[in-house]
Structures are given as C-alpha cells and as structure tokens.
Amino acid sequence: MKNFIVLAVLLPALILALDKGSPLVARAEEDDADDEIVDVEGESDESSVTEEGGEEEEAQPRASPDADTTILFTRPVISGTSGNLELPAGNLVEFLVGFTNKGSQDFMLETLEASFRYPVDFSFYIQNFSTIAYNRAVKPNHEATLAYSFIPAEAFAGRPFGLNINLNYRDLAGNVFQEAVYNETVQIVELEEGLDGETFFLYVFMAACVVLMLVVGQQFLYSLGRKRVGKKPVVETGTSNPNDVDYDWLPKETLNHINKKERSPRAPKQSPRQRKAKRSAGSDD
C-alpha cells in the first residue's frame, strides 16, 4: 500500500519532468520547429520568384491596340515551294514596314531591328542585324513607311531560320511599345549564277570594241599597202585641153594616137604666094 502511494505521488512529478526537462523531447520539438521554418521560407522564396517573374512579364513591351503594321518584301521577290519565304544567301534583302496610327495621340517610331533565330526555339539568336533609328512622328489617322535592308550570311545557305523583325515605338505619354512585324521561319537559298542584264551588255560592248578595232586595223593596212605599191601612172592627155574634154572613155590606142599627133611639130604656116610659087615650081619639074 505504501509503495502504491509512493508511485502515485512520484509518477505525476516524473511525467512533468519528462515533458519539460527531457532532452529527447526538447530535440524533437526543435526539429518540428525547424521544419515549420523551412516550409515557411520555401513558400516565401517561391512567392518571391513568382512575383519577380510576373514583373518581368509585365515589363516586356507589347504592341499598342491603336497601331497597325504591315510588311512587304521588295527585293528579292522569291516564292518558296515549301510555303516559306526564301531569301538569297550573300545578297541584299530589302523590305518596307507600314505603320498606321488609329489612335488619338501621336506615336514616335524609334527603331527597327531584325535577327535570325533558331527555328525550334525563337529565343536563341543566330545572327543579329543592325538596329536602325528613325525617330519619326506619326499623327493620328496618318501612315508612315520605313525601309530596312540586310544581307544573310553565305554560310546559312540551304538552312531554315526564324526571321524576327521588331518595331519599337512610343506614345506622347512615354509608354513604350514593341511589335513583332514579322516572326516566321524562312529558307535561306543559294542563287544559281546566270547571265544577267549587266553581264550581257558588257559582253555586247566588248564585242563592239573588237569589231571597231578590226575595222580600224583593216583600213590602216589598206592605206599602208597603197603607199608601198606607189602612185598609179597617169596617162598624159595633151599639153592643152581648152575645151575641157573628158578623154577617159576613149580607148587607150586612140588616146595614144591623139597624144602623138599633138606632140608632133607642126609645119610652119605659108603665105598664099609661097604656096603658089611652090606649086608652079613643082609643075615645071
């Protein structure tokens, strides 16, 4: 009976001592507290990451609902067989971007940029092109056109790439906007070297120069040959030609006979008395 009373008195005291002063119980309580703290910190980290990600998404500029954009590729105009736009490697590519202001306040067109992206993941850059600054104001209900050009690298021939063209602009209130004017996959092709117009006219010009040189050389050789042969003998038509008669149509024998006749000395003129005396002397004989 005494033992039972002693146990009844000491047992509550022992239980209280174990609850308050036992190191095992204290260690277990500390572990539980640490787990709760870790869980709370994990939740706070996740919430902070989510909030930062949301701020980054909100900070990304987007297109304005009061603006419309269009794009037109002017050089070269190639229709792709696979449905994608085909651009020549190593050649100039030109396009125009049209901007329409449908709002009630002015827009300032700042820059236009283009880049090649990885076709599977457009966030991976392959080639960046120049960023051109325009700083052109567009009033409400007005339009503007921007020109841009770039040259794809020759090493990209035969491969598809994502072409991303962004237009950056802002309004008078300072709000910044960005619109992807073009964001599709294009095919880089290698053009076959053919006979273009410039090459054709170059060949024609060279052929004309060669013909001209041949003609000049022929004339020079012909004149040189005439000098070596000498002058053609001139047929004398007489010492005098008072009537200016053309004797070229006469045969050569007749012309020579006429020349001999003109060269022979003429008999002296005789008076009628001398002729009469000469006749009488001849009759006496």
Rank of each mutant, 00 (worst) to 15 (best):
F99M: 03
Y125I: 12
F122W: 12
G80S: 07
R75F: 08
T74F: 02
S82N: 15
F73R: 01
T100I: 07
G80L: 04
E86R: 02
T69H: 13
A114R: 01
G54A: 10
T74V: 04
S79Y: 13
G80M: 10
F122G: 09
Q105T: 14
T50D: 13
D121T: 08
D68R: 15
D66I: 03
Q127N: 12
R75I: 09
T50F: 11
T69W: 15
S123Y: 11
L96P: 04
E55M: 15
L112N: 01
F116Q: 01
V77S: 09
S82C: 02
E52K: 12
E51Y: 13
E52T: 12
D121H: 09
T70Q: 11
L109A: 04
E55D: 15
T81C: 02
F124N: 10
P88N: 15
E57G: 04
F122N: 11
E94L: 02
Y125N: 12
E113V: 11
N101W: 05
R117W: 08
S47I: 10
I71V: 14
L85A: 00
E57N: 05
T111Q: 07
S82A: 09
L85E: 01
E86G: 00
F73Y: 04
T70Y: 13
P76F: 06
F122K: 09
R117Q: 08
R117M: 05
D121V: 09
E86N: 03
G83I: 10
P76E: 03
S48I: 15
E46N: 05
S48Y: 15
S79N: 12
S82D: 15
A89C: 03
D66S: 13
D106T: 13
P119V: 06
G103C: 02
N101Y: 07
F107R: 00
L112F: 04
T74K: 01
G90S: 04
E58R: 14
N128S: 06
F107G: 01
F122M: 07
D45H: 14
E94Y: 06
Y125K: 12
F73W: 11
K102P: 00
Y125E: 14
A114H: 04
P76L: 00
T70K: 11
A63F: 10
G103E: 01
L112W: 04
V49P: 00
A89V: 02
T74W: 05
S79V: 13
A59V: 07
F99D: 03
N101C: 14
F122R: 10
N84S: 02
R75S: 06
G54S: 15
E113Q: 07
I71N: 09
N128P: 00
V97D: 00
E94R: 03
E58Y: 14
Y118V: 09
R117T: 13
S115W: 08
A63C: 09
G53T: 08
I126T: 06
P65Q: 12
E86W: 01
L92H: 14
S115T: 06
G90R: 00
I71K: 11
Y125A: 09
P119F: 07
S123Q: 07
